[in-house]
């Protein structure tokens, strides 16, 4: 007579567990893990660009608050340090936007007539929309600044 035994299966996450009752060595990520490969470094650089951008936006909000009191007592920052910081933030913003939009082709799936749009077309559309949006924003800013 056969006896059916419910065998523990690792595929069900059951069983004795390879590590149970055994002394294991547990690794820790070294603090410099992001210097191991170029890919990790570029990832951290991409994420880091958000920090100066956030600081610049906080500054912008502060300036908007000051400007809210009226033009009479408002003096926009014109120091060389602020201009240099803004230029760096602009470069960071461009790099961050570039990496973000470049990945859009991986993420977005669009189907037209049951056919998937190639990722390259989606990326080009994203960069096109970015360029068009920048032109519109630039036009509005220049228009109001006249």
């Amino acid at each position: 007579m056969a006896t059916e035994i419910d065998m523990p299966s690792p595929h069900r996450g059951e069983g004795q567990g390879e590590g149970q009752g055994v002394k294991e060595y547990r690794w820790r990520m070294p603090a410099n893990w992001w210097t191991r490969t170029r890919h990790y470094f570029l990832y951290v650089a991409r994420e880091f660009t958000a920090v100066p951008m956030a600081l610049w936006l906080i500054w912008l909000l502060y300036e908007i608050k000051l400007a809210g009191n009226g033009p009479a007592g408002y003096y926009p920052p014109r120091s060389a340090a602020f201009v240099a910081f803004s230029a760096v933030v602009l470069l960071f913003a461009l790099y961050h936007s570039y990496t973000f939009l470049k990945l859009a082709g991986v993420i977005i799936r669009v189907k037209v007539l049951d056919r998937s749009i190639p990722p390259r077309v989606i990326v080009m559309a994203m960069f096109g929309a970015w360029a068009a949006g920048s032109v519109v924003v630039g036009f509005v800013l220049i228009w109001f600044a006249r």
Binding site: P10, H11, G13, Y25
Partner: peptide, 23 residues
């Protein structure tokens, strides 16, 4: 393999992965 507990030499403990796979 990085990021897994080490049992012996080049053998890692894959229990955590198995639990996640099941989940």
């Amino acid at each position: 393999l990085n990021n897994f507990p080490l049992i012996r030499d080049l053998v890692i403990d894959m229990d955590d992965f198995m639990h996640k796979l099941k989940s």
